[in-house]
């Protein structure tokens, strides 16, 4: 066990955990922030996507000991009240079915638009391919990303 100080969603958090613990489980089990989802544990589904210094990473592959001073943003901190352009676009297109993967999809989409404010269909496919939606809402996700691109 070791003590870590983490900057998450603009706040400082302290945890005492095994250094190998992935951020996914630090968030979910130790900090009561379950918006970041467990889907596979091997970076194959994207459900646990968070931002590390603004870039999308899979929290299941990010040991807490490697985070150090980098800023973490989770779905809970993407906006104050669900008004990030990507979140608004998701609501406008009523994207979700079961909803489980959507936090990860949204975090990936927000990261994509930061890098590429006007992505083409191919850009979206390439960037978002790591995020599985088992309900098959891919068409709405793509439409929502385009709407968000226009609004941000």
């Amino acid at each position: 066990m070791a003590k870590f100080t983490l900057k998450i969603n603009g706040q400082t958090h302290r945890v005492d955990v095994d250094p190998s613990t992935p951020m996914l489980w630090v968030l979910r089990d130790h900090l009561d922030m379950p918006g970041t989802k467990y889907g596979c544990g091997v970076a194959a589904c994207g459900a646990c996507t968070i931002h590390l210094d603004g870039s999308a990473v899979r929290a299941c592959q990010l040991p807490v000991s490697t985070v150090k001073n980098q800023e973490i943003t989770t779905i809970e901190g993407l906006s104050a009240s669900g008004d990030h352009p990507v979140q608004r676009a998701w609501l406008e297109h009523d994207v979700a079915q079961c909803g489980y993967c959507q936090a990860g999809q949204i975090m990936s989409a927000a990261s994509l638009l930061k890098i590429n404010p006007n992505p083409t269909d191919d850009d979206i496919d390439a960037f978002m391919s790591g995020n599985i939606c088992r309900c098959g809402t891919y068409l709405r996700i793509k439409a929502a990303i385009k709407t968000a691109a226009q609004q941000s």
């Binding site: 009561d32 922030m33 379950p34 918006g35 970041t36 989802k37 467990y38 989770t74 779905i75 809970e76 993407l78 906006s79 009240s81 669900g82 979140q87 998701w90 609501l91 009523d94 979700a96 909803g99 489980y100 959507q102 936090a103 949204i106």
Partner: peptide, 21 residues
């Protein structure tokens, strides 16, 4: 009519079994 849980979903509110504690 929009999904009544839409906002909960896009803001990552705990709703699923795995979120229960």
């Amino acid at each position: 009519r929009k999904n009544v849980d839409g906002l909960n979903i896009v803001t990552g509110k705990p709703m699923f079994g795995l979120d229960y504690r």
